[in-house]
Design a protein around this nucleic acid. Sequence first.
DNA 1: TCAACCGGGCACCATTTTGTACCCGCTTTT
DNA 2: AAAAGCGGGTACAAAATGGTGCCCGGTTGA
Lengths: 113, 113
Amino acid sequence: MHQGMKKKFLSLNERAAYHSLEDVVGCKWSAGVVAALAEGVSRPGELERYIPGISKKILNERLRKLLDYRLITRSEIPGRVPHVAYALTGTGRKLARVIGQLKQLDQAHRESR
Amino acid sequence: MHQGMKKKFLSLNERAAYHSLEDVVGCKWSAGVVAALAEGVSRPGELERYIPGISKKILNERLRKLLDYRLITRSEIPGRVPHVAYALTGTGRKLARVIGQLKQLDQAHRESR
DNA sequence: TCAACCGGGCACCATTTTGTACCCGCTTTT
DNA sequence: AAAAGCGGGTACAAAATGGTGCCCGGTTGA
């Protein structure tokens, strides 16, 4: 695109970025999962109980996706019973803060209605 | 919840907030629409051309939803031919900035793969 | 006169996403 | 011994979302 000329359309990079955004934040329950992790809830069973309404299947899918996007890590806790802990990565914490801002926008919106 | 005690689950308010978030940002094409508006694209026809792949139906639905959440305004441009202009509100601009941050997170993620 | 543009609607269909219910192996509790 | 808990998987059904194609009335252009 020539300097000074207005863009004619969203570039492929931008479109890809928004699709990734949709892929991560756009799915139902994603924001809640990230928020729960940000609050220190780290084990699958805990997350399931902490987020009423979420199904085990969807929780697992969200965790897998967040792992794939490197927004969380997964570690196995030693012991006879298989315990696992998920945690936000640095990028994941940034996402959590962004989600917090979105939440505040919603709050402001609510209060103005 | 007693002070000092850990929350047992996401509160109803938080859940509602995340559902609203999903309702606004979570839908396909929403981020792209907000981004386009942030870049000064304001008329429906322009938006449709600016965001390749989006359908007229979905564009209209997104605009309606953004209006409902008071993230954008709609004004009719005087003239024989019905022209309309959408624009981000203050809150809408904040959302656009947040979306920009999410986009940057995605960029960082891409570069680390 | 017809086509294109303006902005917008809607029925129907296709696709995608989410939820349900059941399954697994293991350990611990009842 | 059975049930419950741990973490996780999958087939199928249900629900939700998005896209197509056509429709509208108006103005302008071919």
